[in-house]
Amino acid sequence: MCEVVKALIFLARQNIAIRGSTVTNPEAVIAREPNSNLSQLLKLMGSSTTDLEKWLQSKVTYTSPDNINELLNIMGQMISRKLTSQIREDGLTRTSVAHEEFLGLYHVDKTGAVTLFITIKDVTLRLGLPLDLCRGQCYDSASVMSGVKNGAAAKVLEVNPKALYVHCYAHSLNLAVQDTTKDCSVMRDSLDLCNELIKLITSSPKREAWLETIKKCSGEGDSAGKVKRFSSTRWTVKASAMKRIIDNYGSIQTLLDEIYDDSSDRDTSAKVLGLSTKMEQYDFLFGLILTL
């Protein structure tokens, strides 16, 4: 049993699926699934442990889907207790330490402020983190969360006035910069074109691989990095995505030329030709650099 737990800890820690991609019977004992990751890992561990090898050859128990899920839940609860214990210890000292820890995803039947507040209150109570020790809340600008009178933040403030609400800094920065760029046509157009370029490349694994081949042939290799997707809420992610466009500028222009020559679709050809033409203009590159 201990070996099964060790194997589960390893798979969960490395974010590896317990079963794998080939499952013949979802209700079967997982350790008896010949191609499951758990089964193969146990066999590997059993090659150096006689007792485990004999156990695997016998009628394997404790590895049904229900048992595995229960073990994983217990592990998750142990991790949560350890994290919350550390938060409580730091919170009770004079020099408090800021924590950013992921403690779970929670399902809600409704998305109203009252429902979300009740969920927050219930979760913090279960984790042993009383709301009266909370000193801050951070959400985006959605009214259901940040509403001054009826938002979830307001409901928490009614219970604990010291839990001050702060608009997410990353989201605030993104909103501020977006409003700023709207007043500058060069920056606005460059951002829009950059987004279209990224969608064109990242929407096709073939084009991504094509771009990597072009970079290798040109001697750039991995030094410029891969093209990254835009983020709708984080400006810092947008900035890094735009920098990747600048770093791969020449290779992307070559890629557009090859896509245009290879494509038989008129809409794609027209879109690629338009992007290629814009990339040859000074305003586009200047706008990207100015935005950064």
Rank of each mutant, 00 (worst) to 15 (best):
L285N: 02
A270N: 10
A154Q: 13
K121W: 03
T236G: 05
S276D: 03
T181S: 06
T50P: 00
S240G: 08
K206A: 13
T202C: 14
S143K: 06
I68D: 04
V227F: 12
D132I: 08
L255D: 08
D257L: 09
D90E: 09
N248Q: 11
L127Y: 01
G221T: 05
L8A: 02
V60P: 01
L52G: 01
T93V: 14
S190V: 09
L125W: 03
V97S: 13
P34V: 05
T63R: 00
A98D: 08
N37P: 07
Q137H: 03
Q281Y: 05
F117K: 03
K238A: 04
A17R: 13
S276M: 10
V237T: 15
T61W: 03
G46R: 00
L275A: 03
Q77D: 07
N35K: 11
A270K: 08
G20H: 03
T291K: 10
M187A: 14
S276Q: 14
V186L: 11
C194R: 03
S36T: 06
A7T: 05
A270L: 14
A28Y: 02
A176Y: 02
T181A: 06
S263D: 08
E70Q: 10
L175E: 08
K216T: 05
V156G: 01
K226L: 06
K82M: 08
Y260A: 10
V272E: 14
R126G: 00
T268P: 00
T115C: 13
T233M: 12
T61E: 09
E258L: 15
E280I: 05
K6C: 04
K271Q: 13
L72D: 00
S96W: 09
W210M: 08
